[in-house]
Every structure is written in C-alpha cells, then in structure tokens.
C-alpha cells in the first residue's frame, strides 16, 4: 500500500572528527506493493539504508518519503513498518509468543499467530524464552513477528542467513505466499543473487561505498516458475552477459 521515494544526496559516516561518504547520491522509487531486492557487497551501506528508511537513522542529507496510490507524499512515520534485522532482536524476558504479541497496537490476531507458529514449526516452544532456542529458531520467531503485523512496508536485512537450506527455502516460499495473499512493499537486502531472483520483482545492484545504483533490473520470471532452478539459472546467466558492470558482485 505504501511505496517509498528515496532521494539521498549524501550520507556520511563519522569516525572521530573525520567523515567519509557512505551513501549517495542515490535515487530510488519503489512502487507500492513492489518486491525489491537490494544486492550489494558487504559493507556498502545496505543496512544503513534500511535503518534510514525505518527512521532509525536521520543523520543524512536528502529525503525519504512514503507514497500511496492515492496520496503522493505520505509520511513514512504513518505506515506500518516491519523490520527484520540481521540478528533476531527478541526480548529475552518474554516468551516466544509474548514477543510476537508485543508489537501489535490493537487486538492481537491469535489465529494468524497460531498458523504462523505451526508453519514455522515453533508451536511446541511458543511459551519458551528465546535464550533457550537455537539461533535459527529465534530468527524464525523474528520472521513471524514481522509477518504477523501485516506491514505496509517490510524491511528485511539478510533474514535467511544462518538458516539451513531447506528451512530457508521453506520460509522463502512462505514469504512469497504471504506477499501474494496480501501484497505489500518489500525491501529485501541480500548478497545471494539466486535468492534475489527467486523472490523479487526488481533487483537493484549497489556499488561499494559510497553506495550508488549500479543496475536496476526487472525480473520477468512468472511467479509460478520461481521454484524452478533452471529458470533462475538461465536468468542469472542472461543477467551477467547483459550487465557486465555487476560482474564483480556475483
């Protein structure tokens, strides 16, 4: 429901008295309900960009605003954002279920949470404290928390790192399924191009610091074929031959 309009003139990183540019100039227009993957080398500022979009980092020159189909410039502060960080960031003093229920402003959608817990195979330990779970399980809790609030804008920062391949595949499928049921804007940071192709409508390749757009590519594989390894490989090969500038990233 909410698109994002990003126009960053510059973003600097301060260490001591010196400042070095990390992002910019960078312009991106994310259409409402688009699923966008940001692909770039580690340390190029992808996480910083997500933090700026989430409003956690306001120290930059430029502006980031939301846009809906009806209104053009809404404040991002009014949209429901779910942010999946690289680490799970669960409250250790609350159980799995309490952690999920905490983020709701209004009534808690009990049935939805039940369903998600079952899908993520976390139902048996929903009343355990996070520290008693493995890191992979904690990540899945964080994923449920992000999905359950039905966000307008979902920010995901390499959410499937450290999950084993079958679990990652399963959650990717769930993410796609949820997104089709209830379309929302997704910004997904990854350095795994195959993952990006399997998920996204649009790939944005980013340069090392100071971060700029290297390439902006639409993924035209139909949704039904996203599980097809061959289709993804073909797309990847075509991508490489047509965009030599992103060769270093792959």
């Amino acid at each position: 429901m909410s698109g994002v309009h990003i126009d960053i003139v510059s973003k600097q990183h301060h260490h001591g008295h010196r400042a070095s540019p990390t992002i910019g100039p960078l312009q991106l227009d994310i259409a409402p309900n688009q699923f966008v993957c940001l692909v770039g080398p580690s340390g190029c500022g992808k996480t910083t960009l997500l933090q700026m979009i989430a409003g956690l980092d306001r120290d930059y020159v430029g502006q980031i605003v939301g846009s809906t189909t009806r209104l053009n410039n809404t404040r991002l502060a009014d949209t429901t954002i779910a942010y999946m960080f690289q680490n799970p960031r669960l409250l250790p003093w609350y159980s799995v279920r309490q952690n999920i229920e905490l983020v709701f402003q209004g009534p808690v959608p009990t049935t939805l949470i039940d369903q998600l817990l079952v899908t993520m195979q976390l139902e048996p330990c929903q009343h355990d404290y996070p520290q008693r779970l493995s890191l992979g399980m904690q990540r899945r809790v964080a994923i449920i928390r992000a999905f359950a609030i039905n966000p307008d804008l979902l920010l995901m920062d390499e959410p499937f790192v450290s999950l084993d391949a079958p679990a990652a595949r399963q959650i990717r499928k769930l993410l796609r399924c949820l997104w089709q049921q209830r379309p929302h804007t997704v910004l997904f940071v990854t350095h795994d191009v195959r993952e990006a192709i399997a998920l996204a409508d649009r790939l944005i390749f980013l340069s090392p610091s100071p971060m700029q757009t290297l390439a902006d590519i639409a993924v035209d594989i139909p949704r039904e074929q996203r599980d097809d390894e061959v289709a993804i490989d073909t797309f990847k090969t075509r991508l490489l031959s047509s965009h030599p500038e992103i060769h270093d990233l792959l």
Binding site: Q51, A54, G55, L56, T80, I81, A82, Y83, F85, N87, R89, L91, L102, V103, Q105, R145, I149, L155
Partner: peptide, 16 residues
C-alpha cells in the same frame, strides 16, 4: 541499543 531500535521501528511508543 538493538532492542531499542527494534522497539522504535515497530513503533511501540514511549510507554510500551
């Protein structure tokens, strides 16, 4: 700080 950021991005509000 990580947990405070989580609270801020999920808009938990001051009291919560």
């Amino acid at each position: 700080q990580d947990l405070l950021e989580m609270a801020e991005s999920y808009r938990l509000g001051k009291w919560k």
